[in-house]
């Protein structure tokens, strides 16, 4: 649904080139919620703004719903007719809502409909439906200043949906909201995604947002996507940075010199199995648990656990083999005896 190929964006700031996007290849499937996560300055905001050409990429292509937007772009910062028409089928939600303070909630939702050239009665009807959809029908006559943050964002979402878009872009839509409100907005997005078949590309710096609504995710760092794919697969990948962030095991302790630390990832079905006690019983190993984390992603439980086994790596070949046999992904984090040597 959304594809970017080798997308690059370079800004010129006081005579120096600053690279915001350094060859980004993004593939968002139709009907999925795709999250891009990264620290501020990673280029994720630039990426989402390049998708609807609010920001012109320096090179590379952006294709949305089969239409290559980069080809429509035209010259200079102004959008040509073709691009403007294409943008009408791409909704966008902003971190700071960007609602017009001089217009009521209803009139804010009507704005894109005015741009589309709908007549007054049709606009009224559509705006009413949209406000119903986001649960704000009773606030139609209020001004944005009278609404809470979450309500403002609901208006923002209703407005973004006015053009009946297939794609919704969300640029840190929940970052200015408290955790409770964030959850309700994410639920709304998820609900719209399911009910309208809306493809959602969202940008966030919060891991919680990714785990609670996304089907797929990408991690951005320094203008590049370092990891991407189905969220469940990503989290089940040993050594994944995203997995480490979502399922944190804490810092590696300064362990005993004669011990092996294992990071175990247990995807899906294996999560419920009591492998720790089985390991202890069948192999008579005195293991200690250093950390563990479990998340439910897309209805599947995914977890990570860090355990410490006595003895060096080569002495633990049997228990490690046993764990791998169980379908667990085992990562030997340290072999301290070798480190010391």
């Amino acid at each position: 649904m959304i594809t970017t190929a080798d997308l690059r964006k370079t800004y010129r700031v006081r005579g120096r080139d600053v690279t915001a996007l350094d060859g980004v290849d993004l593939h968002v499937q139709e009907g999925e919620v795709y999250g891009v996560v990264g620290t501020s300055g990673a280029g994720k905001s630039t990426l989402v703004r390049c998708v609807n050409m609010l920001e012109r990429p320096t090179s590379g292509t952006v294709t949305v719903d089969g239409l290559e937007l980069t080809a429509l772009a035209g010259r200079g910062p102004r959008a040509g007719r073709g691009l403007r028409a294409a943008r009408r089928s791409i909704g966008m939600v902003f971190q700071h809502f960007n609602l017009l303070s001089s217009r009521t909630v209803r009139d804010n939702v009507e704005l894109p409909l005015e741009i589309m050239g709908l007549d007054r009665t049709e606009r009224r009807r559509r705006a009413g439906d949209l406000l119903d959809l986001v649960g704000l029908a009773d606030k139609a006559g209020a001004y944005p200043a009278q609404l809470s943050g979450g309500q403002k964002q609901r208006v923002g979402i209703a407005r973004a949906l006015a053009g009946d878009p297939k794609v919704l872009l969300s640029d840190e839509a929940t970052s200015a909201l408290d955790p409770e409100t964030t959850r309700s907005i994410l639920e709304l997005l998820r609900d719209l995604n399911r009910r309208l078949g809306l493809t959602v590309l969202l940008i966030t710096h919060e891991m919680d947002v990714i785990t609670s609504v996304c089907d797929s995710a990408a991690l951005m760092r320094g203008g590049r996507i370092t990891e991407s794919g189905r969220l469940a697969d990503l989290l089940a990948t040993p050594g994944s940075e995203l997995a480490r962030a979502v399922l944190p095991l804490g810092d590696l302790p300064a362990g005993r010199p004669d011990a092996t630390v294992l990071d175990i990832t247990f995807p899906g079905e294996t999560a419920a199995r009591p492998f720790v006690s089985q390991l202890a019983r069948t192999h008579h190993v005195d293991l200690s648990i250093l950390g563990a984390a479990v998340e439910t992603v897309g209805g599947r439980q995914i977890g990570r656990m860090r355990i410490e086994l006595p003895g060096r790596h080569d002495e633990n070949a049997v228990p490690i083999g046993y764990l791998r046999e169980q379908g667990l992904l085992v990562d030997v984090v340290t072999d301290r005896t070798e480190d010391a040597a």
């Binding site: 609807n52 943008r87 966008m92 902003f94 700071h96 960007n98 741009i115 053009g163």
Partner: peptide, 16 residues
């Protein structure tokens, strides 16, 4: 006027 508002209109497909 907040530049974000202009951006919102652009994102809706509005002209200058």
């Amino acid at each position: 006027v907040d530049g974000g508002l202009v951006e919102a209109v652009q994102a809706m497909g509005g002209s200058t």
